[in-house]
Design a protein around this nucleic acid. Structure first.
Lengths: 205, 205, 205, 205
DNA sequence: CATGAATGAGTCTTCATTCAT
DNA sequence: GATGAATGAAGACTCATTCAT
């Protein structure tokens, strides 16, 4: 019944890229689960399989680590959507595919949603959450797409901003409701139905 | 030659209800601003104009105080919506009025939105946030309303659940986007336009 | 052989003055022994017989506590010298008594010397050590005393500043050498001999 | 199409003596500025232009490095004084020249003073500071010099130990006061005046 | 040998909660 | 009951030292 001395996990030397990936992945997990305040840097280090000092060598404060985690998530979201819509010209098709890619991303990366919530919770109105920073930075191209939809003459709604808001708010609301309400509905099918519902309207004309 | 004793903020004699209200109001403010973890019980006591011990007599832990704050907000939201729709029979009208009352509440009580975010941030998937507990508890009556809309024969969409989701997600998304993105648009007018857009659809038939 | 549960030292409530005294005394001890960096706030709390939080309630940072400790020592030094010279008019007598009181203080409070060393060690040239701040603030009255000595016509040295420097540097050097070199000579007797030596000169005329 | 490899600060090939000198010089600077605790071994390595591991090959611990730095300074002080008094026989002249060399050294090497302060601050009464170790080791020859002064019959003071103390304490005090009080007076001229003052006494006989 | 990436023990500070008055 | 002084557990961050390359 004597304690087995834990072999102190011989010191590893890995590439900076690998370390970055390990730490970012660990931090994403820990921050998503526990929030910014609730996360313990020691847990991040443990999950990443490194010492605490190593985490601090890459990200000098907890806050910078958190920001890096959120940025990383935003970049993956952006990349996934851009890959999906690559080469699509028709604005309606563009919108539908984006909407699906958006939902698919959050379906596959629910941690990201948690991060957004934590970010907002921690910094409140002091700084605009990354999600909205990104959204605003892409606002022009989205609006252009909406304008092309209106110009096609196929829309009953002629205010492109209203279209943008409808789609944007519905997407955001759907993504959150699905995650937070705990209903693990198949987001993709739902996405199509919701977007379709939005486009064709609830009321018979 | 006796010194005039400084009046030591004479121990207040207030009713328990008044104390409860004071503490709840103070806590709402402090929790909304700083989140659950970030809130300092001392600040709550200071804002409420009572000693810290008194706060603990009414709410034995920080967590219970937070829950009470959120419950209180949910009750006010519920009451406001119920008052608004009182006596309305037509389901379309009912929906429109609810939607407006919902937006009006959050417009007037943005702190409530912050509380919802903080609640989710702190407890994650461990417990369903109050907003969704309430929503689920009212799901039946909302669904019934959607069914009546479908039954009216006026809807293109015949799945009442889809209607419920569309409206619910759009409402939730709009409420959050308006608050978080920092656009302080007149929520009420926007509410009408959005709901109208949803009902009549984006596309010309 | 079962462990005796340590009675957790029932919570005390003392006057703020008493607490201040306890904490200051404990901090003087711990800082003198271990220096600023080397001192552990937990030790200070332990020595003062209070919780760590209590120390922080009185002195919000380690640095402020250290400054308070040094200030306290300077005030005691100042008070002791002023008491000793109270009512003395003759400048030579004034000087001799001050010199003795100065030595007596450091003899009785060697911790103070350590504090001075630590203060200088920690803050280097960033801020003038308290000892010299005090010294400068009293420079005028000391100089006046030296001028009166010169004016008496009894001095070979006619530059009052030189007299001031001689006495000041000798006092400072003697105080430190006695402490640091570890010679625990009877400082008082030595003080008289040294001052006498300085006044009457080493060389026969 | 091959990239030009960045020359990675080619591993230096220097003699051990050169490395020692570099490291010692760097450490003197860093320790003087920041104290023992405050000094960062990384900074020492950076200033010396070597890797941290190399510093540790020459001096296996921070403490040993510090001791080496102080020893080095003491040796330079000793050497400078000995060079200055070389060949001087007259004890009064010997004393005057030593006093000047002493002051000149600290004038030119104020870092040394800081090191003494830091050494005392860090080790307190645990070990006698190098300055006093040196002083004690030379005590005999200094005392002999004082005895020769007494024997010359020119001194009013007949206790050679008292003379030794007077000069020693005044020298030490003057050196420190000049450095610490921040007065950057020309130490050399002051040295002459002070020593002269000490020898001829303040009082007219 | 030289390097610097990796480690983790050590400390200041905060704040929820308790309890003497 | 009401108060706020007292407590101590918890956690971010630093840096001397080690050791894989």
């Amino acid at each position: 019944m004597s304690a087995i001395p834990v072999e102190p996990a011989r010191r590893q030397r890995k590439s900076a890229e690998q370390r970055t990936r390990d730490i970012l992945a660990a931090a994403t997990l820990v921050f998503a689960r526990n929030g910014f305040r609730g996360a313990d840097m020691q847990h991040v280090a443990d999950h990443a399989g490194v010492g605490k000092g190593t985490v601090y060598r890459f990200y000098p404060t907890k806050e910078e680590l958190f920001r890096a985690v959120v940025d990383d998530a935003m970049q993956r979201l952006t990349a996934q959507i851009e890959t999906a819509v690559n080469g699509i010209d028709d604005p309606f098709e563009y919108l539908r595919i984006s909407f699906r890619a958006y939902m698919a991303f959050f379906q596959a990366n629910p941690d990201t949603i948690e991060l957004f919530v934590h970010e907002r919770s921690e910094w409140g109105t002091e700084c605009k959450p990354s999600y909205f920073v990104y959204k605003d930075s892409h606002s022009d191209e989205w609006l252009a797409m909406c304008e092309r939809m209106v110009a096609s003459g196929l829309c009953r709604i002629t205010d492109p901003i209203l279209i943008q808001d409808l789609v944007g708010n519905l997407a955001y609301g759907t993504m959150l409701v699905n995650r937070i309400s705990g209903r693990n509905a198949p987001l993709l099918e739902q996405a199509d139905a919701l977007l379709d519902g939005l486009f064709r309207g609830i009321l018979r004309t």
